[in-house]
């Protein structure tokens, strides 16, 4: 029970990696606030699953791509259990489009959620952590796309590259308050958000390029997230753990 009685907020917690982390944290003893944007049914499923473990959970809706939503969202999330010890910034979007055909709107939308949304949520949560002397944890779900190029994902790549620097910058400035900021960077993870055709086309190419010979599963991200949320990683700060079966370290 490495997260006993901790309160965690997981953005984009209704599906995929966010869902896996939310449930994984509950299994380690945390109570969890599950943020969602539109899939209330999925968010409630996650809340139900967490409650079955004996922990408490609540779902809160917000569009984190809209800056004006965030102060109210953080306030509402904080008030559920009266504190937040662990913030997992997981909500994000990725559009596939050739650079030369990309619209400015798509670029802006991607940065608004993946970068602005993470920065603003972290800023508001961090201020409250400091006011309440909570030596908290901020974990950002970034991507190998933050440091290596995936063609036709330019806006996403840039948003994750920016997020990587945001993680390091926040870690540098928040360290003296006892708040640790780190990231996890998966490559390809099998979730429902990825279109079906991917697994029989591009997915196979990624698999061939991966030394461990398989694509990622949600479970692969949960262990490292728990590590970064728990006291045993107290001295890990400003680091991004890459979870990709070795894909990014080689040219196969």
């Amino acid at each position: 029970m490495r997260l006993e009685n901790k309160i965690a907020l997981v953005t984009g917690g209704s599906r995929g990696i966010g869902r896996g982390i939310a449930i994984g944290f509950a299994e380690e003893g945390a109570d969890v606030i599950v943020h969602f944007k539109s899939r209330i049914d999925r968010a409630e499923e996650v809340v139900g699953t967490i409650r079955k473990t004996g922990r408490k959970a609540a779902a809160i809706q917000a569009d984190l791509g809209k800056p004006e939503s965030i102060p109210g969202f953080v306030s509402e999330a904080w008030d559920v259990f009266g504190r937040i010890d662990i913030l997992v910034n997981n909500a994000g979007i990725a559009y596939e489009i050739e650079f030369l055909k990309m619209s400015f709107e798509l670029w802006r939308e991607t940065l608004s959620l993946n970068l602005d949304g993470v920065m603003l949520t972290s800023q508001h949560v961090a201020k409250r952590m400091i006011d309440h002397s909570i030596k908290g944890r901020i974990i950002c779900v970034t991507s190998v796309n933050g440091f290596q190029v995936e063609d036709k994902f330019l806006a996403y790549n840039v948003s994750k590259g920016g997020l990587d620097m945001l993680i390091r910058s926040m870690a540098a400035e928040l360290g003296s308050y006892g708040i640790r900021v780190n990231g996890i960077a998966p490559s390809v993870v099998k979730t429902e958000i990825v279109p079906e055709e991917f697994w029989t086309t591009t997915g196979l190419l990624f698999e061939k390029k991966t030394p461990l010979g398989r694509l990622g599963e949600v479970e692969d991200c949960v262990g490292p997230a728990i590590l970064l949320a728990s006291d045993e990683s107290d001295y890990v700060n400003g680091h991004i753990i890459v979870i990709d079966g070795g894909m990014s370290i080689t040219q196969l």
């Binding site: 993680i167 890990v236 700060n237 400003g238 990709d244 990014s248 080689t250």
Partner: peptide, 15 residues
């Protein structure tokens, strides 16, 4: 699912 990596544990210095 982690391989080929160097995990840094240094309080944030290198970051």
């Amino acid at each position: 699912y982690i391989t080929g990596q160097t995990i840094i544990i240094d309080g944030g210095t290198i970051g």
